[in-house]
Simulated scan of single mutants.
Amino acid sequence: MSETVAAPSGSEKAIRAILFDKDGTLVDFNRTWYSISCELARRSAAGDDVLAKSLLDAGGYDAEAEKFRANSVIAAGTVEDIVALWHPQDTDEQRRARVAEYDVYGVEEGAKQAVAVEALSQTLQALKQAGFILGIATNDSEAGARATAEALGISNLFSGFIGYDTAARAKPYADPLLHFAETVGVTPAQVAMVGDNPHDMECARAAKAGLAVGVLTGNSPREVLEPLADIVLSSIADLPDYLAGK
């Protein structure tokens, strides 16, 4: 492991499935989504660079730190949340059209520009070989999750893809985890939720998941995740050893 972590409590022994957040957990969020978010902000601002920067700031981009803020709308919300924030005066028809447009762009560019976290494929393969059922739950679209996994060559390792448009409600509600558990035939208590933002941990708690695992590869620092998580790891690369009790 890259750092010392608390010894497993025993709950990890009951875990049969692992549900991963995508951006910030499997994918480097800032390197993948900064340019995409800039383009969407530019479109929303009709080419006005000053307004576009203002929209990015409102969405959660900290220009001074050059990263997105923890649990901000862009980092943790859905495309519907972003559109609602940037275009509060849209009619329902305008909102639906804009969401559809941004979704298509996000699917294409999210897959094209996806930057994997370190040791992604090796870690997922190790977990799969250890017998865990793997899934992705993201506040991106289901199509976006599938396209990114395909682009990174890891789609065959997952048994479920849940986007904001898959279950009734997106994270932080319990619905994505409950949907995954039912789909793969396990109980929520047999699922470990792994993510980089508070809404991932809140989803785990709401669903009564067996384990809530925070990782530090995304936008949330340790002090934000620790009060909500059972364990905080440097990255998913620490997960195989942790679950094995090493």
Rank of each mutant, 00 (worst) to 15 (best):
Q125L: 10
A143E: 15
D238K: 06
A237Q: 14
G153I: 11
D28Q: 13
H87L: 09
T217E: 01
A170I: 02
V191A: 02
R222T: 00
S11V: 15
A145P: 10
V79R: 14
L124M: 06
A207G: 13
T4I: 12
S121Q: 13
P88A: 02
F161E: 06
P8A: 00
F132C: 04
A192M: 05
V115N: 07
W86C: 09
P188E: 07
Q190A: 14
L211C: 12
F180D: 06
G214W: 09
R16A: 11
A45N: 01
F20V: 07
S121H: 15
R96E: 14
Q190F: 01
L216T: 07
V107C: 00
A126W: 01
L55V: 03
R42H: 13
R42P: 00
R95Q: 13
N30W: 08
Y34Q: 13
I154C: 11
T25V: 00
V191S: 10
N139R: 10
I236N: 04
G131C: 06
G214K: 08
S54C: 03
H179C: 10
L152D: 09
D230A: 02
L124T: 09
A97M: 04
A75T: 11
A204Y: 00
L211I: 04
V186D: 01
A119N: 15
R69C: 13
E64L: 06
L152Y: 11
A75N: 11
A207W: 01
G210D: 03
T123L: 07
V186I: 07
A130N: 04
P88G: 08
V117R: 03
A45E: 03
S37E: 12
I36G: 06
L127V: 02
G59S: 12
A170D: 08
T4S: 09
A147R: 08
N219E: 15
S235C: 08
G185M: 03
A229T: 04
R96L: 06
I15Q: 09
I18Q: 02
A174W: 05
V99W: 02
L233H: 02
A209Q: 07
V5K: 04
A114F: 07
S44F: 10
G59W: 05
V117I: 15
D90F: 15
L120R: 08
N139P: 00
T148W: 05
F68Q: 00
G218P: 06
F68C: 02
A6V: 10
N156Q: 14
A65S: 06
Y34W: 14
F29M: 12
D21L: 06
S234T: 12
W33L: 13
A170S: 15
G24A: 13
A14I: 01
A116L: 12
D57E: 15
G214N: 06
V224N: 03
E12I: 07
V99L: 11
G163C: 03
E142N: 10
I74L: 08
I74D: 09
S235Q: 06
D49N: 05
R205T: 11
T78Q: 14
I236E: 05
A41I: 09
V50E: 11
A75M: 13
A206G: 01
V27S: 12
G218V: 08
E80F: 11
H87M: 08
D23Y: 11
V83Y: 05
G106Y: 15
V99A: 07
L211P: 03
D81V: 01
P240D: 13
V50M: 00
C203V: 04
Q122V: 05
Q129L: 09
